[in-house]
Simulated scan of single mutants.
Amino acid sequence: MKKTMYNKEMIRLLNMNIYCEYLLHNKPPIIFIHGFVSSVYTFRRIIPFLSKHFSIIAIDLPGFGRSVKSTSFIYSYENYGKLIAACIEHFQLDKVFLVGHSMGGQIALYTTKLVPDKIDKLVLLSSSGYLDKAKRWKRYCSYLPFCEIAVNYVLKKRSVPDNLKNVFYDQSLITKDLIEEFGRPLKEKNFNKSMMRLLRYREGDLTSEQLKSIDKPALLIWGREDKVVPFYIGMKLEDDLPDAKLIAYEKTGHLITEEKAEAVSKDIGTFFKRSNE
């Protein structure tokens, strides 16, 4: 690996400025991939546990967090997968572990299909699955002048606290810091344009047939009370992926890295460590 110190900085991937946090110390590397309208902040509570035994790389995907809100990038899962592949190349990594939350889980799967030789194992945290691409009329509407206004309306229709209530089982864990962090990107220039382009270009999730070709060991971690990606999606993914194991936490919602940080960290660490025994 090229770098040996902890950093929070912009790196260039696919000719874009991508925000990256990394700690590389000659230990097996984990790349963290966040979900929709999220950022590396998603993993803030589990990274300290895992950094003791693994090198850590977490990026904000284009359109989210502190990364560029590009108005030219084609926001598809395949291109996000290519971005993760470029990140692997940037840091000169081999035998990478992927951890993807929600939409990030689907991107982890796409990445594994693109560069299977670079991926060792993957963990899918409440991963999206079996969603079709946006309906044709919505994609056509994304080219119309009023679409950006409509996207802005939809994103702001529910307040950030209301959105957080939807992803937490334990409402008492919602803090002012969480509200501020998840609300900040919504105010950034070109955020609406990037979300409009994601609506336009995002292809559907991988099909059952495509999933059956991904033979990497996979750990699926779910909250039983997940309202965003219901538990049955995890059960279906476990059936379709050739080498997958599903575990569930009781009284836990979609944002399991916040609600069950210690348990998630322990389960991920145990799963990945077995590769080095």
Rank of each mutant, 00 (worst) to 15 (best):
K3S: 13
T4H: 11
M5I: 08
K8L: 12
E9S: 13
M10P: 00
R12D: 13
L13A: 07
L13G: 06
N15G: 15
N15A: 15
Y19M: 03
C20R: 06
E21K: 12
Y22C: 13
F32G: 14
H34A: 06
G35K: 04
G35T: 03
V40Y: 14
V40R: 13
R44N: 13
I46Y: 02
L50R: 02
I56W: 08
A58C: 13
D60C: 05
F64W: 06
G65A: 11
R66V: 01
V68I: 14
K69S: 12
S70W: 02
S72N: 14
I74E: 10
N79R: 00
G81R: 00
A86T: 12
C87H: 00
E89A: 13
H90P: 04
F91K: 07
F97R: 03
V99C: 05
M103F: 09
G104T: 08
Q106I: 12
Q106G: 15
P116V: 04
D117Q: 10
D117S: 08
D120E: 15
L124M: 06
L125N: 01
L125P: 01
Y130Q: 07
L131Y: 06
D132G: 00
A134Q: 08
R136I: 14
K138E: 12
K138Q: 11
Y140C: 11
C141E: 07
Y143S: 10
L144N: 03
P145F: 02
P145L: 07
F146M: 11
A150H: 11
V151S: 07
N152G: 14
Y153W: 15
V154H: 08
K156N: 15
K157W: 03
K165S: 10
Y169F: 15
Q171H: 10
Q171W: 02
S172N: 09
S172W: 03
I174T: 04
T175R: 04
K176N: 13
E180F: 05
E180M: 05
E180Y: 04
E181R: 01
K187C: 10
N190P: 03
N190M: 04
K193R: 10
M195F: 12
R202Y: 11
E203D: 06
G204L: 04
T207R: 06
S208I: 12
S208Y: 07
S208F: 08
E209Y: 04
L211M: 06
D215L: 05
L220W: 04
G223N: 09
G223F: 05
G223A: 08
K227Q: 12
K227C: 07
V229L: 02
F231V: 14
Y232M: 00
M235H: 00
K236L: 07
K236V: 00
L237F: 10
D239V: 01
D240P: 01
K245P: 02
L246R: 10
Y249S: 13
G253D: 04
L255A: 14
I256F: 03
E258C: 03
E259G: 09
K260P: 05
E262V: 02
A263S: 11
S265N: 10
K266D: 15
F271C: 01
F272E: 06
S275I: 00
